[in-house]
Design a protein around this nucleic acid. Structure first.
Length: 760
RNA sequence: UGGGCAGUAGUUCAAUGGCAGAACACCGGUUUUUGGUACCGGGGGUUGUAGGUUCGAAUCCUACCUGCCCAGCCA
């Protein structure tokens, strides 16, 4: 990925700076070979390979083939093709999770020997029942304490195929009451008498994802393991297995939001349905969001990569507008697809001043004036032409710049055509136009429009496929009747077009712009003995269509389930229950409220032994109660979220000392925060730290004045804006002065000085 | 509902306690032998809500609201 800032790149950067992995960056792309890759996978590929590339690391391609059913070498080939198509190379780092089966088996034996795993004989249903629910703990398996030797023996028997599917599983012994359901003795192995596409019939047990994945990462020396948000809960397990077997530094998992695209479905199941029910030709149908489909449609891989890079990476669920993909495709193709002409909906035109059978070849540039590339092709100009039916209007709307009866228009590269006669049939349908072609600059009205055309006699018939979105709803899955209910009936429209001869001879895979129509690719199905097929990759932007036809009505709002009712224990109820168990808490609360704390603050401090003790100590040293509470509630708790209080070097005395420093004006609040951060790391008492670091505030009016004057002088435009009312620039000025003083200036004084200087 | 995660412009993302920005989308204009491209400009924001800490909060703390994930022997 290029230089975009995102939390994954920052993580790698931080690990590089801290030397976590000795400067190594190794990522992996781990598809399961049981389906085709789609544009959602493209995001993963660009992140996995791109980030490794950007930081001078490498990315492994590893097939996560831990479940033989549905997996096939067909998919491993198509996946490799797709990754290469996007422009990424894994070199010698092609791996299969199945290559690690022997190692994983040994790991399982080790965990059993260490009493951290066991063979369980519960049935599928029993396992489900004993797992509990999200609100109730599970119950331990009766086999949880099966003797190690028994488990070991059973494990070997399972491997050798001596037991039926479902008879036994291997489970990690973690915690059946864990609030994270993934940690309730998860399965490591299940029995499957199935043929594996690589290991054949040599195994009768296959490892589960959670057991295999992190350990496979660790085996390969992966440093950063990126996956999607739905694996967040699995991270605890990932760490459990990896840390049980490997010594640090171990790989870490980071989750990002998966890619969602408007008017598209990306779930494997729904894509299969589209194929199986015949809504599309197959996996490479140009309407499909599969990489095979995008390739067939002609979308350049570079545009897909650019698209993913522009979407960015974050942890927020989101829905990306397909218009962004269209944009990156056009942006890439504009300077790379030579121009050609073709008419999709032909209307015959006779040039009355060119004799029958007489024609000439005109040489037209392949590139418009603003693209600095050379090249031209010959285009036949004959008496009989075709133009686009919609480029002629008997009754033109306002602003119409094309042909009208008696009107004049430029035929691209050929001259100025004047429509002198409109031919119609019995039904009044327009069947053709007649008129004269004049050279450029001929007398007559100036023309506003230029239209494309093709020779009716020397042009070549072609089959053209116009591809549109597959669904009519932005979020097809949100439709109450399912995505199939909003299939777009016009997602694929076939036209008989007339194209210029130069295009008819282009080899399959050639991408061109048909002027005014869009970018097209010569389809691979094109054969010499039949009309060639062109697929439209993407239409040109059309600012006229938007103006000519009214905006489409907003899609119907997605139906939502009525909100579940929240039944939550109120804070005070919970507090009451706690007091019943621990009556001393009531006394504490009384004392705290007597000290003048709010009920909320009192509850926070009174219910936590450590915090209460800290508070009591600090107050005993004479510190102001409110200040103590603010430090504990606002600053300390930010830290104790991550690290327990006991691990911090913070005493009530130190806190009191810090507060005294602030109230006596020895240090500023901002500095006090820095000091606080050092105190909890055990770097000494506040006074020691302040003295050692020279953190006392600068109150010398002359120095502050000098800094302030400098800032004011350096930003005359901002000073003016401030004086004109943009008072939110105050933060900017204060910030600049604070920065100049490296955070040591007394902000109150800075504000006073600035007040004077900015008053004008 | 127990746990986890997330809310910044119409959309996708930046801003790492100090001026709320970019791209796409939308709307104008200039250029143009593509109603394309390029260039210029514009509208758009109570940073989910309410409190608190701070000289100063999108950013730190709290509560609430909304959405997503977890009860496969799938990955």
């Amino acid at each position: 990925m290029s230089e975009s800032s995102n939390f994954l790149a920052e993580q790698i950067q931080a690990d590089l700076e801290q030397g976590t992995y000795g400067g190594r960056v190794v990522t992996r792309f781990p598809p399961e070979p049981n389906g085709f890759l789609h544009i959602g996978h493209a995001k993963a590929i660009v992140v996995d390979f791109g980030l490794a590339q950007r930081f001078g690391g490498r990315c492994h391609l590893r097939f996560d083939d831990t479940n033989p059913v549905g997996e096939d070498t067909l998919y491993v080939e198509s996946i490799q093709r797709d990754v290469r198509w996007l422009g990424y190379e894994w070199g010698e780092h092609l791996y299969y999770a199945s290559d690690y089966f022997p190692k994983l088996f040994a790991f399982a034996e080790r965990l059993i020997r260490e009493g951290r795993a066991y063979v369980c004989s519960l049935s599928l249903d029993q396992i489900r029942e004993t797992r509990g629910t999200v609100t109730e703990p599970g119950t331990p398996s009766p086999d949880r304490d099966r003797p190690v030797q028994d488990s070991l023996r059973l494990l070997r028997e399972m491997r050798e195929g001596k037991h039926a599917e479902g008879a036994y599983t291997v489970r990690a012994k973690i915690d059946m009451a864990h609030p994270n359901m993934k940690m309730r003795d998860p399965l490591m192995y299940r029995i499957r008498h199935a043929h594996h596409h690589r290991t054949g019939d040599s195994w009768h047990i296959y490892p589960m994802y959670d057991f295999a994945h992190g350990l496979s990462d660790a085996i390969e020396g992966i440093t950063h393991s990126f996956c999607t948000l739905e694996f967040e809960n699995n991270r605890a397990l990932y760490d459990w297995f990896v840390e049980a077997i490997f010594e640090p530094p171990v790989p870490h998992q980071y989750e990002m939001a998966r890619l969602n695209l408007s008017y598209v479905v990306l779930s494997k199941r729904k894509l299969i349905t589209l194929v199986r029910e015949g809504h599309v030709w197959g996996w490479d149908d140009p309407r499909m969001p599969t990489l095979a489909g995008l390739r067939r449609r002609g979308v350049p891989p570079e545009a897909v990569v650019a698209f993913v890079e522009q979407v960015g990476v974050s942890r927020a669920d989101s829905l990306v507008d397909v218009a962004l993909l269209d944009h990156t495709v056009r942006d890439y193709l504009n300077t790379r697809a030579p121009r050609r002409m073709g008419v999709l909906d032909p209307l015959p035109v006779t040039l009355t001043n060119i004799p029958e059978g007489e024609g000439r070849r005109i040489e037209l540039d392949e590139w418009p004036h603003d693209i600095p590339r050379q090249g031209s092709r010959a285009v036949p100009l004959t008496r009989h032409l075709v133009i686009e039916r919609e480029d002629f209007a008997v009754d033109p709307p306002k602003g119409f710049k094309r042909l009208t009866p008696g009107g004049r228009v430029r035929l691209r590269g050929a001259g100025l055509f004047t429509c002198e006669e409109v031919l119609t049939d019995q039904a009044g349908q327009i069947t053709g136009l007649r008129g004269r072609l004049d050279p450029e600059g001929a007398p007559g009205p100036k023309v506003a429009g230029t239209i494309h055309w093709s020779s009716a006699t020397a042009g070549v018939e072609a089959r053209v496929l116009l591809v549109d979105r597959l669904f009519t709803l932005e979020r097809p899955d949100d439709h109450p009747d399912g995505a199939l209910a909003v299939l777009n009936p016009d997602s694929l429209v076939e036209r008989r077009a007339v194209i210029e001869p130069a295009l008819a001879q282009a080899p399959a895979g050639t991408r061109v712009q048909l002027e005014r129509l869009g970018y097209f690719i010569v389809d691979e199905a094109a054969q010499s003995d039949q009309p060639p097929t062109l697929i439209r990759i993407v239409p040109l932007k059309d600012s006229w269509a938007a103006k000519a036809s009214p905006a489409e009505p907003a899609p119907p709002p997605a139906k939502k389930d009525p909100g579940r009712k929240r039944v939550r224990k109120s804070a005070s109820e919970a507090l009451q229950e706690l007091i019943e168990v621990r009556p001393e808490i009531a006394d504490r609360l009384d004392r705290l409220e007597a000290d003048g704390l709010s009920e909320e603050d009192a509850a926070v401090i009174g219910t936590d032994d450590g915090l209460f003790e800290l508070y009591a100590q600090a107050v005993a040293q004479g510190a102001d109660q409110v200040a103590v509470v603010n430090w504990i509630v606002n600053d300390l708790r930010a830290v104790t979220k991550e690290r327990p209080l006991e691990t911090l070097s913070l005493t009530g005395a130190a806190l009191a000392e810090l507060i005294a420093l602030v109230t006596q004006g020895e240090i500023t609040t901002a500095v006090a925060r820095k000091v606080f951060a050092r105190v909890i790391e055990g770097e000494g008492s506040p006074i020691q730290i302040v003295d050692r670091q020279g953190l006392r505030p600068i109150r010398d009016p002359a120095r502050i004045e000098a800094w302030a004057a400098e800032v004011v002088q350096a930003n005359p435009d901002k000073v003016q804006a401030y004086r004109q009312g943009r008072t939110n620039l105050r933060g900017f000025f204060v910030g600049q002065v604070m920065r100049a003083s490296r955070g040591k200036a007394d902000p109150a004084m800075v504000n006073r000085v600035l007040d004077r200087l900015l008053a004008g």
